[in-house]
Design a protein around this nucleic acid. Structure first.
Length: 777
DNA sequence: CTACGACTCTTTTTT
DNA sequence: AGAGTCGTAG
């Protein structure tokens, strides 16, 4: 028996060695799913299957990369290399690049991310003179996305009276027209959005049997990871490709389906047996990751869901510690507790910072934790969030590059035609667009033939010159692209377009960081090129770089494998594991989200999300919530999440530091709740009572000695200066304004001290100490 | 045409 | 609070 088969349990062994025919692997959390997938592919190759004939679809590019590396260790680099492995989106983008001509797309089509998509929709709505209040672009976008994911094309939409009626009832009778215009615009721009990558693949496979046959023959063995999160469009692609050989293996866990908002259809996995009656089902139920206590607590919660396969996930690991629940007064308090606890646990248990993760429901929760961690000098890395590539200045430079690759991309063109400002104003731009539209040509074509169109456009010589200058600059870049590397072209673009100079003129800290971000983009490009050069058939071209950043947020600056605490949303944490997990913000309307507490389905998904979060933990889990939180620009009261009460008391224990008498405000500065400021404190007195009630109703505190000092000590003693420490004449640092000197202080009330600070670059500012977060230097 | 200021909406989650 | 949009003065 091959080495890699040793050490598999009975079900894992079956899943790995059943190579022919349809197979469904129901893999509970932590049951060694990735291992099974990896070994299964290795086993296929060892048994003579050409890796060229294997297609493995994963959920993230990161997962694909990691799996490929693991496979390479078993079957060798050269075998692993010819595997097709990646996300649905990246695999089919690649296929569409070579086959898209069947559908009238150029091979250099642009991929629009959701922001590009939104911009196009906004413009369409504007052009149609429709009330944007009624047709919220976001809403329209998600509507169109739903249609596309269910293969409802524009034509199908207009052939479907029910849909149209439904939209009309919802007061959105123009949805169809917007949809149509949007699709036309994308096509004209030579662009596909994320949903198109799947929709067009379907179209390709249905309309062109020879193409279908080609890929059916190529992909004789298909594996789909995270099958519970596939949408209808993906489902159909898989079904079509697999229908010849039916060597299809899907792996998933219905309890971890968390992407319905983007069309994931849990019935794909629930009904797998109906599609493939001969399918063999294997259940992996033993959890090797977590302690018994964690697994049992997670089971208790997920059991509240009505809709699921019967499974019995169990752990034979140690029983483990109970989950500790920390009740905090504010988001800042919560963050301080978490940071302090990480610091303390690391020292006490000799752990690495990379053993810790902080998981939350929404990206906006990151900030408080970043502040708290930074204050304690704890290294951390935030995953996802406003990704680097979504920064304005980065997108601007990318828009130039996109335009070089696909000059029909008027979205990119219009973004930078007057950025940096070069005197091509709104009026001129509008004339261009209207003219191009009415003549049914791309804006780039108008610019190509300016002299010819000039009389009709009615531009004066000044404008014509500016347009000419701009367009010949772009053309020059394109010529450069033929001989130079992507990196040096980008550098040239950054300089000659005036972008760098424009950004450098802004000497504010934000301005400086924008320049740094552009530099960072250049670096990541250089890194990408070097990486591609090392791979045997790598592709260091600009188009490939652009595709890469469009389809994966996780490619950005590689981890130095440094010792860092991980911060991410629960969604992003899927598939990962950490010894110690802090699950934070367990409050009603936050988790479960206020958007999801109305229907049972939504709520069940939130519960699955909770399940995913908890099962990331190997050894210890900490929960926390705050009874008030700074959001939407003001302090909001919050109730503990219902999920907390769904866990049996035997699995959790409440940790209650003596904080009832104190109120820690959002700057992390301690103050006494019984001091002045009755108006501000009223709310807190009320909620404070709630805390005490809960405390009495819950279990006695088992080990307060360990946690209590952490929370208090760390709060009282932040490394940054508290308001009391700052005096006139102090040199201070401000996050945004940089370094300055305090020239004046005003007010006796500690909650409301105003400071006048003279900053080196920013000049004089009046700040409220409580919010300004000044650091004494 | 640009720059600046007032104003509004925002917040789930991501390929 | 912060970003993005819109309106107005220069």
């Amino acid at each position: 028996m091959e080495d890699y088969l040793k050490g598999l349990n009975e079900s894992q062994f079956e899943a790995v060695t059943t190579l022919q025919g349809p197979l469904m692997v129901l893999a509970g959390a932590g049951s060694g799913k990735t291992r099974v997938l990896t070994m299964r592919i290795a086993h296929l190759i060892t048994n003579g299957v050409d890796p060229f004939n294997i297609l493995a679809l994963t959920f993230t590019n990161k997962a694909a990369k990691e799996m490929k590396e693991r496979i390479a260790k078993v079957v060798g680099q050269s075998n692993a290399r010819s595997l097709w492995m990646g996300t649905f989106h990246s695999v089919f983008a690649r296929i569409l690049r070579s086959e898209g001509h069947y559908l009238g797309y150029p091979s250099n089509f642009t991929i629009y991310d959701q922001q590009d998509t939104l911009n196009v929709i906004r413009k369409v709505i504007k052009d149609m003179n429709i009330d944007a209040d009624l047709y919220k672009p976001k809403k329209v976008q998600s509507r169109i996305s739903t249609y596309k994911n269910n293969l409802i094309t524009v034509k199908a939409y207009f052939n479907n009276p029910e849909l149209m009626e439904a939209d009309e009832k919802a007061n959105m009778k123009f949805i169809g027209q917007i949809y149509q215009k949007y699709v036309e615009q994308c096509f004209k721009n030579g662009a596909m959005d994320f949903d198109d990558l799947l929709l067009k693949t379907n179209e390709l496979l249905t309309r062109f049997p020879e193409v279908l046959a080609k890929y059916q023959d190529r992909f004789r063995y298909i594996l789909v990871d995270e099958y519970q999160d596939t949408n209808h469009s993906q489902y159909l692609i898989v079904k079509a490709l697999a229908s010849k050989f039916e060597n299809i293996c899907v792996v998933g866990d219905d309890a971890q389906s968390i992407y319905s908002f983007r069309g994931a259809n849990i019935y794909n996995i629930l009904n797998f047996k109906k599609d493939y009656p001969d399918a063999i089902t294997v259940s992996l139920e033993q959890n090797y990751r977590s302690t018994q206590n964690i697994v049992n607590a997670a089971n208790a919660v997920i059991a509240k869901n009505l809709q699921q396969f019967k499974k019995n996930v169990f752990s034979e690991n140690e029983e483990g510690e109970k989950i500790k629940v920390y009740r905090s007064l504010s988001d800042a308090d919560e963050a301080n507790f978490v940071a302090g606890n990480i610091w303390e646990t690391r020292n006490r248990e000799q752990r690495k910072y990379s053993d810790f993760a902080i998981l939350y429901r929404t990206n906006s929760q990151t900030r408080a934790f970043e502040d708290a961690l930074r204050r304690k000098n704890i290294p951390y890395k935030v995953y996802g969030g406003l990704s680097f590539y979504q920064r304005k200045e980065v997108k601007d430079l990318i828009a130039y590059l996109r335009l070089l690759v696909n000059e029909n991309d008027s979205e990119a063109l219009m973004r930078i035609i007057n950025y940096p400002t070069r005197g091509i104003g709104e009026t001129t731009q509008n004339k261009l667009i209207v003219f191009a539209d009415s003549h049914n040509v791309a804006v780039s074509k108008v610019l190509d033939n300016l002299p010819m169109y000039a009389p009709q456009l009615g531009f004066n010589n000044g404008v014509l010159n500016k347009l000419n200058d701009f367009w010949s600059m772009i053309k020059a870049f394109q010529v450069l692209l033929k001989t130079e590397t992507a990196y040096s072209v980008a550098m040239e673009v950054a300089k000659r377009s005036g972008l760098i100079k424009f950004l450098k003129d802004d000497q504010t800290p934000e301005g400086i960081s924008r320049v740094e971000n552009v530099q960072e983009l250049m670096n990541s490009m250089q890194g990408f090129i070097e990486e591609q050069m090392q791979i045997e058939d790598g592709d260091p071209s600009l188009p490939n770089f652009l595709e890469n950043i469009a389809l994966s947020a996780d490619t950005q600056n590689k981890d130095d494998e440094e010792e860092m605490v991980s911060l991410m949303t629960i969604h992003l944490s899927k598939g990962l594991e950490f010894p110690v997990v802090h699950l934070v913000g367990l409050e009603e309307n936050l988790f479960p989200s206020f958007m999801s507490s109305t229907t049972r389905e939504d709520l069940e998904e939130e519960r699955r999300l909770f399940y995913v979060a908890l099962t990331r933990a190997e050894k210890q889990a900490f929960f926390s919530y705050a009874i008030s939180r700074f959001q939407w620009g003001k302090i909001t009261d919050a109730e503990p999440s219902r999920f907390l009460s769904e866990i049996d008391d035997q699995f959790i224990e409440f940790v209650n530091p003596a904080i009832e008498k104190r109120f820690i405000n959002n700057s992390g500065v301690k103050s006494n709740i019984f001091d002045e400021h009755p108006s501000e404190l009223k709310g807190f007195k009320r909620v404070e009572k709630k805390t005490i009630e809960r405390a009495e109703g819950s279990k006695p505190i088992a080990e307060p000695r360990k946690l209590k000092p952490v929370a208090t000590a760390k709060i009282i003693n932040p490394s940054g200066a508290s308001s009391q420490d700052i005096e006139v004449g102090d040199k201070v640092r401000h996050d945004r304004f940089g370094i300055g000197e305090v020239s004046f202080l005003d007010g006796t009330d500690p909650q409301n001290i105003k400071a006048k600070v003279i900053f080196m670059h920013e000049g004089e500012k009046n700040l409220i100490l409580k919010y300004a977060k000044l650091t004494k230097i």
